[in-house]
Design a protein around this nucleic acid. Structure first.
Length: 528
RNA sequence: GAUCUCGUAGCUCAGCUGGUAGAGCACUUGACUUUUAAUCAAGGGGUCCUGGGUUCGAGUCCCAGCGGGAUCACCA
């Protein structure tokens, strides 16, 4: 009974599925079955040993001219390579293919009399010419040579199926003049089906290779300093360390709400309290806010805390670190093209105070203004103020409106109003300010750092100020974390901390204007 | 969240003031032993994003919805 209905279901399902398939998909499924009927496994379990890569052969093949005028290859005369079939050109009893492996593409040359030396020409005439489709993975053995037109090509002696593709790829084609046909450029399609994007637009792989080099280089730099890479909770009962709306989830056994972290700052500082000199974490943060070309709901952040240091030391460290990372990503260069500008990551970077910056670009001294005068200045700049904004918020807005866009080369903006920054230590000489810097590149913030606040009494007061802001309607104001305060009460050494937005840095180093281009799988609204 | 804009074959796109849905590549069949977006000949392929409306008639005009992109607001 159950079996019958299950089979019936399968039958109906298959029928419905077949109806939705395109002609090309049906043909490919039929080809798959015909291959099986010929006793060939289209998905063989055995490994295929690869001995060469397309790009290496194309770049390094050498040949000599013999006495009789014939040419003889000097290397790659017995190679085994594998990849996806990206083009196929039949020429009667011969056939040209292009296959693509992880390194690039190379042409294959197959002749019937060599693939099928005997009477039975099924393998060449049926399997390779009819049943092979673009997108299939194949393995070949043969030798390299140069065709009349000069293209390095593999003369194939043996051919095997490695995996059948039953869905047509949107293969991009280029003619001799470099004109592109059928470009797969729709961002929606590219992001939703990144596997297709990477296959048919392999140039985008370079962005992700650079991103990987960036992360590896940053880890290497920190590890060389002797600092410890750590992991802290992503599921947090209190979402602290930043001003942002969190994602909320629920733990069944504990029967309590948990939040996906918006920051890991408070946990990393607990580890400094616990006695580590330097800790860093590279990981995902989650913020339940808008999505656009510079914001994804989950993003990668690097945060580092080093004991007995202050923010001046941190600025020097960041200059050295970013120069090191840039060289690793840019093959030794520190300069990179980004949009219309050339950014140079070699230090030292210009330093400008937030108040000095406003003075420089507006000629006004906002330090001397009271709240009412600041509000008036905002009005002159066409900044719409809200009633609950204090001096700090307005100064921050004025800065954003008048200064940020001028900061193209890496620039430290230092010494922020205390209201905006509840986790940083009060400035050693300027009342009302904290010891904080942000690093701006191309008008965008990519790093944020403090001399960390380690006075537990001051920290408690700052949290209480945040709670007042929350009562005034600021949903993003920071929550008081009692356990974090307890840790400070036990004593935290003087410490400097830093956060870097890795995605943004990756965008800078790869000249990409959209965060989606440096994320393999950016968040998208589900279809249907 | 607001404004603008786009959605047509597997891919890239055309489709006029409303009148039987098109091209190139891909696919199918055939020819071709150094081709290269191979070529040549023939052929098949559509929920025109979805749902309403106007009209004798809608891919086209109107409304709503879904999805994308751009700009803006908040944020890193």
């Amino acid at each position: 009974m159950f079996l019958t209905s299950y089979l019936l279901f399968l039958h109906i399902d298959k029928k419905q599925t077949m109806q939705q398939l395109s002609e090309q998909e049906i043909v490919r499924r039929e080809n798959l079955q015909k291959i099986r009927d010929l006793g060939i496994d289209p998905y063989p379990p055995e490994q295929f040993d690869v001995t060469a890569f397309a790009a290496d052969i194309a770049a390094n093949f050498e040949e000599e001219v013999l006495e009789d005028g014939k040419k003889q290859g000097l290397n790659y005369q017995e190679v085994s390579l594998a990849g996806r079939v990206m083009a196929s050109r039949e020429a009667g009893k011969a056939l040209f293919m292009n296959i693509q492996d992880s390194s690039g593409r190379i042409q294959l040359y197959l002749r019937r009399e060599e693939i099928c030396p005997g009477e039975d020409t099924t393998l060449f005439d049926v399997v390779i010419k009819k049943l092979l489709d673009l997108g299939d993975f194949v393995g070949v053995k043969g030798f390299a040579f140069r065709t009349r037109t000069g293209e390095v090509t593999i003369h194939v002696k043996e051919f095997v199926f490695l995996s059948k593709s039953i869905r047509p790829l949107p293969i991009v084609k280029r003619d001799a003049e470099g004109n592109v046909f059928d470009a797969f450029t729709d961002p929606e399609q590219r992001y939703r089906m990144r596997y297709v994007d990477l296959t048919v637009n392999p140039q985008y792989k370079d962005i992700f290779i650079k991103r990987s080099k960036l992360l590896a280089a940053m880890r290497r730099y920190f590890d060389n300093q002797g600092w410890l890479e750590v992991e802290t909770p992503i599921l947090q009962p209190i979402h602290g360390g930043a001003a942002a709306r969190p994602f909320e989830t629920h733990h069944n056994t504990l029967d309590m709400p948990l939040y996906l972290r918006i920051a890991n700052e408070l946990y990393l500082k607990r580890l400094i309290v616990g006695g580590f000199d330097g800790v860093y974490e590279i990981g995902k943060m989650f913020r339940n806010e808008g999505m656009d070309r510079t914001h994804n709901p989950e993003f990668t952040s690097m945060e580092i805390y080093v004991a007995y240091k202050d923010y001046h030391w941190m600025m020097a460290m960041v200059e050295e670190c970013l120069e090191y990372v840039a060289k690793a990503v840019l093959d030794g260069a520190t300069e990179v093209q980004f949009g219309d500008h050339v950014i140079n990551f070699a230090g030292p970077y210009e330093r400008i105070s937030i108040l000095g910056g406003i003075q420089k670009y507006t000629g006004k001294d906002v330090a001397a203004m009271d709240e009412a005068q600041l509000r008036q200045f905002c009005k002159e700049l066409h900044i719409e103020t809200e009633d609950n904004w204090g001096r700090g918020k307005m100064i921050d807005e004025i800065f954003g409106e008048t200064v940020e866009r001028h900061l193209i080369q890496p620039t430290y903006v230092i010494d922020y109003p205390i209201e905006m920054t509840p986790l940083a230590k009060k400035h050693r000489t300027h009342p009302g300010l904290v010891e904080r810097f942000e690093l701006y590149v191309n008008g965008k913030e990519i790093a944020n750092a403090y001399t960390e606040l380690n006075d537990p009494i001051d920290q408690r007061e700052r949290f209480e100020d945040q709670m007042k802001l929350r009562e005034r309607g600021d949903e993003d104001a920071m929550a008081l974390d009692e356990d974090f305060l307890r840790s400070l009460e036990y004593g935290m050494p003087p410490t400097s901390g830093l956060g870097i937005g890795i995605d943004r840095l990756a965008m800078m180093l790869t000249n990409q204007q959209a965060i989606q281009e440096v994320l393999f799988f950016p968040q998208m609204r589900p279809k249907q």
